[in-house]
Design a protein around this nucleic acid. Structure first.
Length: 424
RNA sequence: AGAGGCGUGGCAGAGUGGUCGAAUGCGGUGGUCUUGAAAACCAUUGUACCGCGAGGUACCGGGGGUUCGAAUCCCUCCGCCUCUGCCA
């Protein structure tokens, strides 16, 4: 969440930033936060000085008791009764104000980077790079949902039987290709200096708040009500939360982690006819890279992560483009996000396979993730993450783009992982 | 799931109503000594909030209560451990 001191110091920049997200009544929102914060300070000052008085009276009484001056002690007690009632009231007011302030801050998204273009939806995202030739497949090209049936490598009906729509069963060479992609992505990240972790895929409420999925995306996550836990929508949640309530020392930095996990998304309300096959699922696999950086290094890290993602796509021979997300499409917690989309030839569509973001201190502030700088001062760190990569759409693109009469050709870089060159 | 026990600073571990933000040890940092290192010795070493500052306040798992005063007593929630049961 945002820091009040920054809101006060840079209010105009924050107002302009939030307007890029097309939020109504931005100034009133920020003014409310500022007002709540000054009320909080005022209340705390009053409470603190009352508490100081009460503490000193308590000490006096202790001393008097010891000297056996019971009567004097009783006299002083009358003032403490007064203070006690007053402080109870003030304490409640302080809690309320703090709670209101927290709620207000939870509901304000991050301030977009100055380079983020204005815009309402994904149509306003700006393409900044394109790589690779778009394959020309001819009329007989089939979309992946037909190909997977033809080669019997993914079975949606079976998934429906055992679970429901959006939970596919990968079979035979399909399962093998899936595993090959996971291992390939993990190896690529390890080679790039990321340290591998295997986090839980169920998280508690505090973790949901830490990275900002709660309260913003409550309805998007599968909720285990008996235990009040959530199935993760992305490995970002457990991996970034490894560093919740942590003060790192300078030589712990930079943190670079990679993790493979299944991801679960309810996708409530957005399950439409245009979403077929592997394009959108309730459960999918993803390899995620996460970095924790010093503030002054975070944009360098963002660029490095983008290069990493681009490098993988190049090795897989997939044509892709990179988009700078506009204000309207930018995630709640993000300052700057680049989306990577691969071209899926048979659908004639660009499919999002990666989203690389810098959150600056927004998550770190909720997480209380800091480091000690040269002057031994605690400084909030910057968190970043990116998919490297999400599996199903990569699978869809490989199947569609590489289809031929002999079958589906596996990209060369993957062959050592699959153990076969063609799915036929 | 049943029975019992326990949650204190980076770690270990004292503290059962006041002088306790908290003994002691280890670890960390700085220094003395040394050609250098080790050892020894000395000093220092939590976080957050309020305040221009002096300083103040809060935190001994979370929340609430009793009391003039709570790490210490009570309630409640959470977590951990041991035994029994079940089980990859």
């Amino acid at each position: 969440m945002l820091q009040v001191a920054n809101i006060i110091a840079e209010k105009e920049r924050f107002v302009q930033g939030l307007k890029k997200r097309n939020i109504e009544g931005v100034e009133a929102l920020l003014d409310e936060v500022i007002a709540l914060d000054s009320e909080r300070k005022k209340t705390q000052q009053e409470l603190d000085s009352n508490l100081a008085e009460a503490n000193s009276i308590a000490k006096q009484i202790g001393a008097l008791m010891k000297e056996g001056k019971r009567d004097e002690a009783e006299q002083v007690k009358s003032r403490t009764a007064e203070l006690k009632a007053l402080n109870k009231e003030l304490g409640e007011k302080l809690n309320q104000t703090q709670e209101s302030l927290k709620q207000a801050l939870y509901n304000i998204p991050n301030i977009p980077h100055e380079s983020v273009p204005a815009g309402k939806s994904d149509e306003d995202n700006v393409e900044i790079e394109r790589y690779g030739e778009l394959p020309k497949l001819g009329d007989h090209a089939q979309p992946h949902w037909d190909l997977i049936k033809k080669y019997d490598i993914i079975d949606f009906e079976l998934g429906i039987k055992i679970t429901g729509a959006g939970f596919p069963v990968y079979k035979g060479k399909g399962a093998r290709l899936q595993r090959a992609l996971v291992n390939f992505f993990l190896d690529e990240a390890s080679n790039a200096g990321y340290s591998e972790v295997q986090p839980p895929i169920v998280v508690n409420e505090a973790s949901g708040y830490g990275t900002g999925q709660l309260p913003d995306k409550e309805g998007q996550m599968y909720h285990i009500t008996a235990e009040n836990m959530y199935l993760i929508p992305t490995a970002e949640v457990p991996i970034t939360n490894l560093y919740r309530d942590v003060i790192l020392s300078e030589d712990n930095l930079p943190v670079k982690n990679v993790g493979f996990t299944p991801c679960f998304r309810r996708e409530a309300g957005s399950w439409g006819a245009h979403v077929r096959g592997l394009n959108r699922l309730h459960q999918f696999d993803k390899v995620e890279i996460v970095q924790v950086r010093k503030p002054e290094e975070s944009y360098e890290a963002l660029e490095e992560m983008c290069k990493h993602v681009a490098g993988i796509l190049k090795k897989l021979d997939l044509p892709f483009r990179v988009l700078r997300l506009c204000g309207g499409d930018l995630g709640f917690t993000s300052v700057l996000t680049f989306d990577f989309e691969v071209y899926s030839a048979a659908q004639d569509k660009w499919l999002e396979v990666s989203s690389v973001s810098n959150f600056e201190t927004y998550q770190a502030n909720r997480l209380k993730l800091r480091y000690k700088d040269g002057n031994k001062k605690s400084v909030l760190l910057h968190t970043l993450n990116g998919s490297a990569l999400a599996l199903p759409r990569i699978m869809a693109a490989i199947l569609e783009n590489n289809q031929s009469e002999e079958g589906i050709h596996i990209p060369e870089a993957l062959v050592p992982y699959t153990g076969f060159k063609v799915i036929s």
